[in-house]
Write a protein that binds this DNA or RNA. Structure first.
Lengths: 212, 212
DNA sequence: GGTTGTGAACAAATTCACAGCG
DNA sequence: CGCTGTGAATTTGTTCACAACC
């Protein structure tokens, strides 16, 4: 018997899970034990039907006439997102963006541990940023091997970004988030997600001119 | 005769236009006059059919058997995105993220001018960041009134983010980009786009655990 | 009564296949 | 012959409507 094929979760649903998680954590902080699809909908700006469909694919246990158990949902979504493994992340580049990320509290809250901060500039190596010490980029393979981080954030100047990505891939990193205005290339097995701020702005500008 | 109703551009297409623009500008730099849908596809990671469908809704002038005129496409997309108006942007918050954004060259290249950088902290006011001088946040309404920026980037700590957004709205800003881990509320007429880095990471983590 | 869960209808987006043109 | 342009088919995602249940 082969491994049970987990039902594939639609991409659109995956993209919304973190949004639900955020809302659910707020509910948990407010000590609400139960939450209805309608309430989750208004908290997230989605429709109640969409919420129910999404939670259904998680195999989540809702109670008719009552709602969903907040704790159970948080656990289920965390599990589905793979956060139970406590993924650790490494940040490459100790410039403004890298430092901002290193000091960002939101990661820990949501199951990510920042394992290391690297920079190629010897002048930056040794600097203390929050609880981290900037390490030389040459240490990358060793850190990845030891703490097994699978996600890296690339926050370096564009000209060296591809080189950094290549090093990350060589070191065994399998997921990369970057902020470049250019496309980066990675082998097929590596997940790459790029957030281009100018693109975000352009989308805003367009929506505005369309009055949509 | 009423104003010609511009055919509504699908949201999915709008989201890709900035990606095309980026690739096209690279082509222009390489002094390529023409580009085929196939080439654009491989540059952007999309399918050739998608590219052609998208360019078709722009009413763009392709030449059969040859390709598209790079310059014409750049102009058409810029026009469609509303970049011809040379939108200026203001950045609120002169912390790490704000400073990184203020120094980011990618904006100017793509039609955005950073008009001002604000901070509420008197200790930061007057600092020179690149070509900008940090201004007190009280100047916001005056700057918006004069230079007419319609897009603002919110790069402040979460606790004060909603307050900043309210001030921006009051000052007449109509599009806002933020980096908060929480939902912000704005009147319906204001466009708000939020980039939550932890969400991006979670999506990466999930794709990885799904091997999709 | 209120809410979940879900099949069916609907809408949007992508891909296919190929005609039309340079 | 290569590439664009586009109707048709397919896939994907959302909304509706309502039965099932607590």
């Amino acid at each position: 018997m082969r491994t049970m094929a987990a039902p594939p979760i639609p991409r659109s649903t995956v993209a919304r899970l973190p949004v639900y998680l955020r809302a659910l954590l707020d509910e948990a902080v407010a000590e609400n034990v139960l939450v209805s699809s309608g309430r989750l909908a208004s908290l997230t700006g989605l429709s109640a039907t969409t919420v129910r469909k999404d939670l259904a694919v998680l195999g989540s246990p809702g109670i008719r006439g009552v709602g969903y158990d907040v704790r159970a949902l948080v656990d289920q979504i965390s599990q589905t997102l793979g956060l139970h493994r406590g993924s650790s992340i490494v940040i490459v580049g100790a410039g403004h963006i890298g430092q901002a990320l290193a000091g960002y509290g939101g990661f820990a809250e949501r199951g990510f541990r920042v394992a290391a901060l690297f920079d190629a500039d010897p002048a930056k190596v040794g600097l203390e940023i929050g609880t981290l010490v900037v390490q030389p980029i040459e240490d990358l393979p060793a850190v990845v091997a030891v703490s097994g981080p699978t996600i890296a954030i690339v926050a370096v100047p564009t000209p060296v970004a591809q080189d950094v990505v290549d090093r990350l891939v060589a070191a065994g990193v399998t997921s990369i988030l970057s902020f470049q205005p250019t496309e980066l290339s990675v082998p097929g097995r590596v997940m790459l997600r790029n957030v281009d701020l100018a693109v975000e702005l352009q989308i805003l500008a367009c929506m505005q001119s369309q009055r949509s």
